[in-house]
Amino acid sequence: MAEIRHLPLPIRGSASLAVEAGGLVFTSGLALSPGERPLAPIEAVLDALGTGLPLAAKLKAYLSDIRRAPSLRRQLPDGPAATSMVGAMLPDGVESLIEVIASAGVEPVRQAGGGGIGVTIIGDLLFADGARPGRGGDLAGAGDLTAQAQHVLDDILAALAPYGAGPADVLKINNTAACWHNYALYNAVYNERLTGANAARCSVGGMLEHPLALIEVEAVAARGGPYRFVDSTQSGVGRTGFQPREDTVYLPELGPCKGPHSHGARVGEMVFIAGECPYDAQDRLVGPGDVAAQTVQTMENVRMSLEALGASLADVVRTTITLSDMRLFDDFDAAYAACFAGHYPARTVVGAPLGQYGLLVEIEAIAVIGAGRDGVFLTGQPA
C-alpha cells in the first residue's frame, strides 16, 4: 500500500506535492516564494522526502515572462540538475513554476556533453539540458526552422554520445515551439537525425529565451535497455516510414500520434508517456469546445498506453498538463480528478498554444511501475 505523507504547503487542485518511487522524487510545478528564499517551497518538499536540490537530476522552470530567465538562473544553487526554462501562461499572480526530478539516494553525476549541452546521469538514465539556439548569445539560422532544428538535435545527440547513448536510446523528447508555422520542417529534421528512435514525444508552444529562437528540445535517454514502446497500428503524422518493430506493442484502440514518435516508452520500471491528445481510435477529435470531454478522452489514451507497458494510472508519479487557456482549469481539474482512484500524482499545469486545431488540453505522464503500491505520496493543503 502506498504511503501518504502530508506537508502544509498549498497545492492547487487534484495533485500531490511530490511522489517518491523507484529511487527518485518527482515534484509538482511549485511556485517560487516571494522574499529572500524564493526556492523555499521546492526545498521544503524535497526535504520532506529525504532529498534536496543537490540531488536534483532534472529541473524545469516555467516563467510568465521569459525575460526573467537569466535572473532565475542566478538564483539557482550550483548543482547537478539538467535545466531548461520556457515561457508559459501561469495561474494568476504566479511568476514562475519549478518542477524537479531528484534522486532519493544515489548522487547524480553532472557531465559536460558535446555541443555545450550538459548531461546529468543517475543510474542508467541520462537527462540533457534544454538544447536551444543562441545559448551563447549568437543565433545561427534566424528565421530558419530547419537550420535551428538541425542545430539543437545535433547538440542533443552530441551531448549523449560520450555516455554510450544514441538515437535508439532516447526515450522522451519535449519540444517547445515559438510558432507552429512550418512545424513540418522540424519533423523532417527529427526523422533524419533520430533515425531508429521510437521515443515518446510532447510538443507544445511557448516563449523561448532568445527572441529569434524557434525551437527548444529536452531529452531523456537511457543506456543498456532493454526498451519497450507502445504505438498505434496507424502511422503518426510526419513519419517517413512505419515498419513494425519487435520492441513495440501496437494498439488499434489508439489513434495515430501527432508526430513521428510513439505513444510511450519503458526502460526498467520507468515509463514515459507522450503528450496525449483527445483523439479516438479513428483519429477524430473528441469533445470539440468541451475541455472536460477532451480530458476524459486524453486520460483514456494515457491509461491504454500505460497498461500496454505494464503500468497503470495508480503508478503515475507526475503529469504535465498544457491547457490552451488557463481559464479552463476548473473544468479540466474536475474531469481529471475523476480518472484517479485514491492518491493523485504530482502535477504541473500551464497554458500554452497547442499544435492542432480545436485542442484544449494535452497531457504527458511519467510512471514508475509499483508506485501505486510502494510509493510515497506527499500531499499538501488545498490552495
Rank of each mutant, 00 (worst) to 15 (best):
E95S: 14
F329V: 09
G241T: 15
P133G: 13
G372N: 07
P162M: 07
T379N: 04
C277R: 13
V317F: 00
R266P: 11
F242N: 02
A131L: 08
E209Q: 13
D283Y: 10
I101A: 03
V25D: 02
G141N: 01
A149H: 00
V368L: 01
R201M: 14
G116D: 02
T176S: 06
R68T: 12
L30Q: 05
V267L: 09
S103F: 04
I121G: 09
Q297N: 07
S28Q: 03
G264V: 10
V19D: 04
G342F: 12
A334K: 14
L7D: 08
S33V: 09
A365R: 10
F332H: 13
T322W: 03
I173L: 15
V204Q: 08
I42H: 03
H263A: 11
A213Y: 06
G29Q: 03
F340P: 01
G241M: 11
G358K: 05
T233R: 07
A161G: 01
E192F: 09
A128F: 06
A18R: 11
G236E: 10
I11H: 06
G370Y: 07
R303E: 13
D330N: 13
I363M: 03
G372H: 05
N301R: 09
V152R: 03
V109W: 12
S203N: 09
A219G: 05
A383D: 14
G136C: 03
A200H: 08
S71N: 09
A81P: 06
Y227S: 05
R266Q: 12
A314R: 11
V25N: 02
P278L: 10
I98E: 06
Q381G: 00
A102N: 02
G13T: 06
L208F: 01
D169S: 12
P345R: 10
T240H: 12
A168Y: 01
E209S: 08
G268P: 02
D280A: 04
P382L: 06
T195F: 12
F329C: 11
R74M: 12
V249G: 00
S235A: 15
A112P: 00
V376N: 05
A274D: 08
S235M: 15
A57F: 03
Q381D: 14
A383N: 09
R73E: 15
Y186W: 08
E216T: 11
I42E: 08
E20D: 08
C277N: 11
G205D: 10
G370F: 08
E218D: 15
Q243K: 10
A184R: 07
A199G: 06
F272L: 11
Q111G: 00
E253C: 01
A112Q: 13
V237R: 15
K172A: 14
P167V: 09
G143Y: 07
A184S: 13
T195Q: 14
A178Q: 08
M270F: 14
A112L: 12
P260W: 09
V368Q: 11
R135V: 04
L306V: 05
I156T: 12
P162S: 02
A274R: 02
L285F: 10
I273N: 05
G114R: 00
L212D: 13
G166F: 07
A82R: 07
A308C: 04
Q282D: 13
Q150H: 13
G236A: 07
S33A: 15
S28T: 07
D283E: 11
G115N: 04
V230P: 02
